[in-house]
Design a protein around this nucleic acid. Structure first.
Length: 210
DNA sequence: AGTGCGATTGACT
DNA sequence: GTCAATCGCACTA
């Protein structure tokens, strides 16, 4: 006997896992290339995934980057191999997720700032304590809370077959906008924020992302 | 041991 | 639009 799928969510095909070879090994290019790709968290309560719509690059030598002061205990993951997750607590309030973007020993990363919910929406709503779709993952702290990402995932490998990984795009990226990064004071003018134009899940007031 | 400071968010005027 | 919450980390002494 064949079981009928309970809902469309049950027949959502799992995206192919990306490997390091699928992405550019350079910080700024990686930040741009990640727009449209799938970010997946295999959570104890089920698969949670989003389509990335906003990133920021923190390249080598960037005064705004956490790696700028040199390797410390907190930022060690940024100095690990391409694909290492760097998770830290921002403002003592929320977790923020990055991916190390250069070779082992070099400190740089891409901050994953926002996504468009794809799988596990009801679980994300519970983890966020919010029911509005556009409030689930439209900011770096919100994204981590919705995906259940915290410091336990710091140092894990996006390409190592773990519970936090990147998948191919479920839909190609649209037009990509570029702007200054949000919430920083040093190197504040550098155009290193990338987002999908017109996407309602991009963080902040809409005027920031024309 | 003490100090200052964020790659933010959500509540409130 | 404004603003407080909150805490680990880096730095100074």
């Amino acid at each position: 006997m064949t079981l009928a799928p309970k809902s469309t969510l049950d027949i959502t095909p799992a995206p192919r896992r990306l490997t390091g070879a699928d992405l550019p090994h350079a910080t700024v290019e990686l930040a741009r290339a990640l727009i449209g790709k799938t970010l997946v968290r295999d959570h104890p309560d089920g698969r949670l995934s989003v389509r990335l719509v906003e990133t920021e690059a923190y390249p080598v030598g960037d005064a705004a980057g956490h790696a700028f002061i040199g390797r410390t205990r907190r930022n060690a993951s940024l100095f690990r191999a391409f694909g290492c997750a760097y998770v830290y607590l921002g403002y003592g309030v929320c977790w923020l997720l990055n991916i190390a973007s250069e070779t082992d020993g070099v400190g740089a990363g891409v901050l994953l700032r926002a996504g468009e919910p794809i799988e596990g929406v009801s679980t994300m709503m519970r983890l966020r304590g919010r029911g509005r779709l556009t409030e689930l993952t439209s900011g770096p702290g919100k994204l981590c809370q919705a995906l259940g990402v915290d410091q336990r995932l710091d140092g894990t490998d996006f390409f190592g077959g773990g519970e936090l990984w990147l998948g191919e795009a479920v839909r190609p990226a649209g037009e990509i906008g570029v702007s200054a990064r949000i919430g920083i004071t040093k190197a504040a003018e550098a155009p290193l924020r990338f987002y999908e134009r017109g996407n309602p899940f991009v963080s902040g007031p809409r005027r920031l992302s024309p």
